[in-house]
Structure formats: C-alpha cells, structure tokens
C-alpha cells in the first residue's frame, strides 16, 4: 500500500526557521505502525527526520505526536487505520508545548506541572514494620491510573490548556488522583485544597479529549471528576464549580429537571452578585428575542416527582 506521510518539520538552525510540511512516499504493509514508517523514512530516506522513540510497544511514552490532528503514540497507531482515501497520513508534533525540532517537543512545562502536585506518597503516622494494609480493590483501582506512561497525549489535545496554559492539565491531575485515591496517603485533604485553587481540578472543561486520545485507558477526565466529588465530600471551600454541581443536583432532586435561572442565581448567589448581574443584559436580550419557553422562565417539576425523589434519597443513603 503506497502511503504519503505529510510530516510537519521544523529545524531551529535554519533561517528563517519556520515549520513546514514535507511529504514522503513509501510502501507500507498492513501491520505497519506509524512509528515503523517514520523509522523507515529516517533510515532510508532522510536521516535528519527527528523524533523520540524507544520501546515500540506503548510503554515508554516517548513517541507521542499528532496523527491526523489527534495525539497518539506512533508505535500503537496502524498506518492503515489512519490513511485517508488518497493514502495520506499527516504527522505533527504534540500541541500545547513548544517544538524543539520536527516531532520532538519540549516537555519541561509538562513535568513542572507534575511536580506541582507533590507527586509522592505522603503517608500519615508511623511507617509499619511490614507492608501497609490496603484492600485489593483499592490497589486494583489504582492500577488504572498508575498505568499512565506520561506520554503527554492528553496534554497535547487538552482544550482547557489551549485556552489557558496555567491549567494543571489532565496528566498532572490524574497523577494527583493517584495519591488522593491511595488509602496509604495521608495528605488527601491538603492535596484537594491545593487542587481547589484556580488552575486546578475545576478548570477542566469536560471535553473528554484526554479520554479519547489516551493510549493506556487512564481516563484522565474521569479522574478529575472523581477529584471533584471527593473535594465536595471532603468539604473543601466551595467554588463556582462545586456550587454549580451541588445546586444542579438539588434542582434535579426538587424538580427532576433543570431550571436555568435558579441554577445561575444559586450558583453565583450573593458571593458573586457581580457575575450574576453581568448575566442580566444577555438574559434581557434573550427575553426580547423570545428565547423563553411558553411555560415561562421558571420550570415546573416533572409529574410524579415525589416518587422520583425517593430514588434520590435511597442513593444518597447508600453506604
């Protein structure tokens, strides 16, 4: 199968040093991965093509790059699955980090954020003579997130990071979860307090890009959501995000459905009166445009809501 690899190249030593696309044509086999192809290019067509790679088996995390616009490990991605109808595969360096050369990015910022979550076990109390006792389920649960190989794919495609580079990002937050969920760790509360700050767990926009691109099924966003619910449970100071979730749940409990004006009013409340007031002009315009349902802006509860509430209570009572 003839495949054209359209590779974004960049060499800071040429002048002017601007990224450009270069195409390489080669014959690929069914079983070939994008990494096989890139190595073949490097060994037979162009030694200067630069990338990181090592294990070839999706465990070292070196060869993350964007393939057809989405971050992936080149060693785990089949050429055949990616080639367009015209046989083109586009390869670019990861996003949300500076490029050093060709497909090699600078991951210093990535590691700085990992360091920010104090990524080491901080047990409480005295070290036991033997091992810490921990349930099999809790350790098995942690294998899911310990499976992270720090390849950077999630960070590359994170929409919240693209909007604001100060966001801790999915990899560091998943790493933080690994400690918060570790029964041996004693610093859970202080970790959650730190993650409750701006740029922390509430700044994720829930776009699921990190879940989709993760080559190891870590599910970073799910871990961030778990951090949020643990934060709420631990009673860390409320933020607009946590109030939003709490009020949302309460509204569903009361009415079975959402009530947008109430949600805004109660989320921002008196603490954030200015935010609430700032929404007024838009609400007014919406009203003028007739963006209000026939039943009026405030919603009635779904029929049979009393029975429905009992389910809610049963859930909340459960151990």
């Amino acid at each position: 199968m003839i495949t054209i690899f359209r590779i974004r190249r960049f060499n800071p030593e040429t002048s002017p040093s601007m990224p450009y696309f270069q195409e390489y044509k080669l014959d690929t086999e069914r079983a070939d991965t994008v990494l096989d192809a890139l190595m073949h290019i490097r060994e037979t067509l162009d030694e200067s093509l630069t990338l990181r790679c090592s294990c070839r088996g999706a465990i070292c995390g070196s060869c993350s790059m964007r393939i057809n616009g989405h971050a992936a490990l080149a060693c785990k991605t089949k050429v055949q699955a990616m080639a367009s109808e015209r046989g083109v595969v586009q390869v670019e360096p990861m996003n949300n980090m500076p490029v050093i050369k060709d497909l090699v990015t600078d991951m210093a910022g990535f590691w700085d954020k990992v360091r920010q979550v104090q990524p080491w076990l901080q047990p409480a109390g005295q070290e036991p003579e033997a091992e810490y006792l921990a349930s099999s389920e809790s350790m098995n649960h942690l294998t899911g997130v310990m499976g992270c190989i720090m390849c950077g794919a999630c960070v590359s495609d994170c929409a919240a990071l693209e909007a604001d580079e100060r966001f801790l990002g999915p990899a560091a937050l998943a790493k933080a979860y690994r400690f918060v969920a570790d029964p041996r760790d004693g610093a859970g509360r202080s970790r959650l307090l730190a993650l409750n700050e701006p740029g922390g767990m509430w700044d994720c926009t829930r776009c699921m890009e990190c879940i989709e691109v993760c080559p190891k099924g870590v599910g970073a966003m799910d871990r961030i959501m778990s951090l949020r619910s643990r934060g709420i449970q631990a009673g860390v100071p409320s933020t607009c995000g946590s109030r939003h979730a709490e009020v949302f749940a309460d509204l569903i409990y009361r009415k079975g459905r959402l009530d947008e004006p109430m949600l805004a009013a109660r989320t921002f409340g008196l603490q954030n009166l200015s935010r609430l007031l700032s929404l007024l002009p838009m609400a007014l315009r919406a009203f003028v445009r007739g963006k209000v349902p026939k039943s009026g802006p405030l919603h009635r509860a779904i029929p049979g809501v009393e029975k429905f509430r009992r389910l809610f209570q049963r859930m909340e009572e459960r151990p």
Binding site: A159, D203, C204, E209
Partner: peptide
C-alpha cells in the same frame, strides 16, 4: 472541539 460551555460558570474568561 469544546465550545467552553461547561467552563462558563467556573472560568468565564477561558470559556
């Protein structure tokens, strides 16, 4: 990509 709606409450600027 994400429209930013889920972030509107917590971080309007980024949204």
């Amino acid at each position: 990509r994400c429209c930013g709606f889920p972030l509107l409450t917590i971080n309007e600027k980024n949204s």
